[in-house]
């Protein structure tokens, strides 16, 4: 419940953000997802499900191990900017924020980092 309330509060504070989701990579569970406007839910869900794999950097030295978890990532495409941030102290959790292409990417990433910090404080 605390997680849902945190997500709602975070989204309310940023009208330019279209969706917010949190994914548990170790369990493969989508813990929460809030979408507003005309954004297709299935696309937000697909992006959220991909979050743990996208938030991972390449492993160049050792083929045997998976790439290390990255603190954050983003994807900029023709229509959207997807930002991802790993939750401090809960590295299995990754939050995702979605905004239209014209959004300020740096501000979106910074805000999502703060949201991840709030999720970390809940743990």
């Amino acid at each position: 419940m605390a997680l849902e309330a945190t997500m709602r509060d975070a989204l309310d504070a940023r009208p330019d953000v279209e969706a917010l989701a949190c994914m548990d990579g170790s369990a493969g569970l989508l813990l929460g997802m809030y979408v507003r406007g005309d954004v297709p839910h299935e696309l937000v869900e697909l992006a959220a499900l991909s979050a743990p794999d996208l938030c991972r950097s390449p492993e160049l030295d050792d083929a045997a191990s998976a790439g290390p978890g990255s603190p954050d990532a983003f994807v900029a495409s023709d229509a959207w900017v997807h930002a991802f941030a790993r939750v401090p102290n809960r590295p299995e959790l990754v939050v995702m924020g979605l905004a239209a292409r014209g959004a300020n990417v740096a501000l979106l990433r910074s805000w999502l980092g703060e949201v991840a910090d709030r999720f970390g404080a809940l743990a």
Partner: peptide, 23 residues
């Protein structure tokens, strides 16, 4: 990464991942 992104994103996406501090 680009294959994953193609499932939910059109056009020519850019994927940027921050490297962990040790890397």
């Amino acid at each position: 990464a680009l294959d994953l992104v193609a499932a939910f994103s059109a056009g020519e996406p850019l994927v940027a991942v921050r490297l962990p501090p040790e890397r």
